[in-house]
Amino acid sequence: MTKRIYTDPSIASSEITPESVFLNRRAFIKASSGTAASALGLSTLSSAAEPSELIYKTDPDGSLRGEQTPYDAVTSYNNFYEFGTDKSDPARHADSMATDPWTIKVGGLVDQPGELHLEDVMSGFDLEERIYRFRCVEAWSMVVPWIGFPLSALLKRFAPRSEGRFVEFKTLYRRSEMRGTRSFTSVIDWPYREGLRLDEAMHPLTLVAVGLYGKTLPNQNGAPLRLVVPWKYGFKSIKSIVEINVTAEQPETSWQTLQPNEYGFFANVNPEVDHPRWSQRFERKLPSSIFKPNRVPTLPFNGYEEQVAGLYEGMDLRQFY
């Protein structure tokens, strides 16, 4: 008699919980026990904001590991204008943002519009580490070990329709918790919005990050989940996402709306196209110092040319910057 391996025909293989997610439940339970405590009034601010450990698959391509920007630098030097325009403002003030509960609304041109709760996100996707270069439009850069999953995996669950050509993202806008949005002199029209072409959004490099350095994202880095598009300037990698829409038309994005001659929709890292107010040919790879500025040449598509240049074949990248 041959041995038969038991399989339950009623469970499709796609529904089987991957091991990492199963193991992740522990991280999830650990994170949510904090919530239960805070519901009981036991928790203080600090415990709610403390990043918790994640379980993930290590980046198989460790070539950038030796260049990682230290954790302290990644979490203390941020642009998150909802909390102020100074680089140190987000680390000081982002704690006021409540990230639990958190819901992401997914809609627009999709067959199954709906909502994703953070719990679903944390338990429903295989987390993996991706060590990416991160290049800010302001000519500084970092190397960050993100933890996340491809955006394509998320979008596929909502079944984008064939008319969908773009994806629009929105950041949380909660005035009472975001002091930067209360500034009288700020000219940004909140909420912060970003967008990608659908093929860019589905590209395997495009990541939804829920953590960095093995732990959940600190608020100043865009907790609880953010986009990371490594070949584009940092402002495209929108933080603290609450809404995702698939659209037929190119969505309006915050910086492009504000200063279209300075910030394009594509915003691909390109040393050949300067920002009107500064050169993009070099970057300060942080941490930098006065005597050793660590000024290095900027790479086309931030070093991801091989993987993504095909997306823009036939386009004049000077016109579509």
Partner: peptide
């Protein structure tokens, strides 16, 4: 502050 490394990862910008 510069000598003590208290100006953050990008001291040039702060200075």
């Amino acid at each position: 502050q510069l000598a003590r490394g208290q100006l953050g990862p990008d001291p040039a910008e702060r200075l």
